[in-house]
Amino acid sequence: MTLERIAIVKIEECLLVTIQVDMHDRLALTLREDLGERLLTTQARGVLLDISGLDTLDTFIARVLAGISSMAKLLGAETVLVGMQPAVAMTLVELGLTLEGVHTSLDVDRGMALLKKLLV
């Protein structure tokens, strides 16, 4: 098995994760682990999950993303989910998942602005 990984980029106090590929289950779980480690080593206080490139999000992946948000919180960081596509948002709601408690934003810029507000 290849060592596929989703890149985590540190910008100032934040970690930016851009998910562009179709994320399969293991990749999502690997991301959660990697992100946990990076939060510990960098002491970052914010996480931006950019999912504008994802055209589907099923309940498993959505739960992993929600899990990342809760985990980050325990490690002292706020998470903002940015760029969810309209069709993905509608489908997720129809599935009964509204991801209460996860911060959201339209794009990376605004997500960053929201993080700064949350981190004051």
């Binding site: 760029g83 969810m84 309209p86 997720l92 709601v93 509204t98 959201t104 339209l106 997500g111």
Partner: peptide, 12 residues
């Protein structure tokens, strides 16, 4: 409620 929830997921 769903419309509101979906908008929020997008960040609005």
């Amino acid at each position: 409620m769903r419309t509101v929830a979906a908008s929020r997921l997008m960040g609005a």
